[in-house]
Write a protein that binds this DNA or RNA. Structure first.
Length: 469
RNA sequence: GCUCCCUUCGUCUAGGGGUUAGGACGCGGCCCUCUCAAGGCUGAAACACGAGUUCAAUUCUCGUAGGGAGCGCCA
């Protein structure tokens, strides 16, 4: 049997980190077993579903390269099929029409809670034979009310439910549209889904869905309910902590593989291994190794992972994202050194592409942003002479490589009787405007002769304008 | 309230009847060093609680507590 999994988001909001993790595990399971991965848009709630949300979900999955083999299917395009099967269940007596109004249901629910019962539909219309005129009806599924249902779960073993605790789910609303529960089972059956991997918020729905699947005559799929991802404060993921659109991670300069690597380690592990390439994830992923407890989202570890990927990815693969970040920062990529060279110099000093662009801004901006405190501390009259000497020496340089530059700096420091660092830091402030940059020779090489000499001469006049005789 | 699920360092996790309870992020220290990083070494840091089973429980069982989910004509 070929494995077939699916990711079935509802387009009522953006794709957040929890949804991505569900998609990732479904995708990994399919890929690991050489199976198929289906994308299905569950848009039966026409009130809340939007095309914009669909677009954002598609864009997010595409960015992460969680590519599907089938779909996207849209439930709103399958309404005829749901109606057909609902009719069949009605004819077979496996479903029935319910004429209870929302108001009546609400009153009974409140009473049940008051009595300490699990609030659920009381089956009032189960055996009703009359058809009240002019009263709208929904279609309910007749769930067995005796015995127990065992959900065999790939993540947490067998979970038992007393059928008496289960009520009769609405399959078709009074306006004729199918509900999520009905759409899910029909689609999973029609699409031949073999493994349903989803969040454990669906665990309680599973026994009732299993009954419907059996009534419909489909084979029951295997289930794997994944633990939730909580916010960093342990509360449910919300817009306040972590449940942001996954595309925001892209916009902040995170790499898709780093995001995936972070998420795959939430609830799953393979010994002590922390870094997994896509290929390794696929080869090693094993749903029986997924643990059952919820985990918290930790942005610090994501940053660390992103830096690991920044350090190890081919620089060429990072240029597009880096250039985009420069542009977002209002900088002109063509006004500075080649992106690849900047990435090589900065990749181990940045956690995101955004940080990288920010740190390298002085290479593209003219004049660079100046850290006044650094200038006061390092560009003092005492450094005037060494800077002037360096300016002269660099002006004579025939070639402009980090080796040449290092030699020039060492020579000037020696001539002035000061340590390399005593010269390096003022030079750094002079050419970058701040106190932090890659090794000074690399920094000078990157900035280029013209800008270095120009900024150095400015520093020479600045330091010479003071108390120097 | 009812049903279901979960519980190892702050966080992500490994482990599993007898271990100095391992790794990673973060945090502290040292080394390296022209700054910042990166890197190396190193330190602090955990089996929720109570019974039971057992020669022996962090590991198995049951409770308790805490957390989560579900209980919609939402998905």
């Amino acid at each position: 049997m070929t494995v077939k999994t699916r990711f079935a988001p509802s387009p009522t909001g953006f794709l957040h980190i929890g949804g991505v993790r569900t998609a990732l595990f479904s995708w990994l399971y399919a890929r690991h077993h050489g199976g198929q991965f289906v994308l299905r848009i569950e848009d039966t709630d026409r009130e809340r579903s939007t095309q914009a949300a669909v677009d954002v979900i598609l864009e997010g999955l595409a960015w992460l390269r969680l590519e599907h083999d089938e779909g996207p299917y849209y439930q709103t395009q399958r309404f005829d099929r749901y109606a057909e099967l609902a009719d069949r269940l009605l004819r077979e007596g496996k479903a029935y029409r319910c004429y209870c109004t929302r108001e009546e249901l609400e009153v009974r629910r409140a009473a049940q809670i008051a009595r300490g019962e699990n609030p659920r539909y009381d089956g009032r219309c189960r055996d009703r034979t009359d058809v009240p005129a002019g009263v709208p009806s929904v279609v309910r599924f007749r769930t067995p009310d005796q015995g127990i249902t065992v959900v065999p779960d790939l993540v947490r073993g067998s979970v038992e439910f007393q059928n008496a605790e289960l009520d009769d789910l609405i399959m078709v609303r009074s306006d004729g549209t199918p509900t999520f529960h009905f759409g899910v089972v029909v689609d999973d059956g029609d699409m031949g889904i073999t493994h349903v991997i989803r969040g454990d918020d669906h665990l309680n729905n599973t026994p009732r869905q299993m009954h419907m699947i059996q009534a419909l005559g489909y084979p029951v799929p295997a289930y794997g309910h994944l633990p939730m991802i909580l916010g960093s404060d342990g509360a449910k993921l919300s817009k306040r902590h972590g449940a942001v659109n996954v595309l925001e991670y892209r916009d902040e300069g995170f790499l898709p593989d780093a995001v995936l690597n972070y998420l795959v380690r939430l609830g799953w592990s393979h010994g002590d291994q922390e870094l997994f390439s896509r290929e390794e994830m696929i080869a090693l992923f094993d749903i029986s190794a997924v643990n059952a407890s919820a985990s918290r989202f930790d942005g610090e570890k994501l940053k660390w992972l992103n830096q690991q990927y920044l350090k190890s990815s081919p620089a060429e693969s990072l240029t597009a994202g880096f250039v985009e970040q420069l542009q977002r920062a209002g900088l002109e990529p063509a006004s500075g050194p080649a992106p690849v060279a900047v990435i090589e110099a900065y990749r181990e000093r940045a956690t995101t592409l955004r940080d990288l662009a920010k740190s390298a801004a002085y290479l593209y901006a003219e004049p660079p942003t100046i850290d006044e405190a650094a200038v006061r501390k390092h560009l003092t009259p005492a450094i005037n002479a060494p800077l002037a000497r360096l300016f002269a020496r660099l002006g004579e340089l025939k070639t402009w490589t980090r080796g040449d530059l290092h030699g020039a700096l060492e020579a000037v420091a020696a001539e002035c009787g000061i340590g390399f660092g005593k010269l390096g830091q003022p030079v750094r402030v002079a050419v970058t405007g701040g106190t932090v940059s890659p090794p000074i020779d690399v920094t000078l090489e990157l900035l280029g002769r013209d800008k270095v000499l120009e900024r150095l001469s400015r520093a020479v006049s600045l330091t010479g304008s003071g108390a120097v005789a």
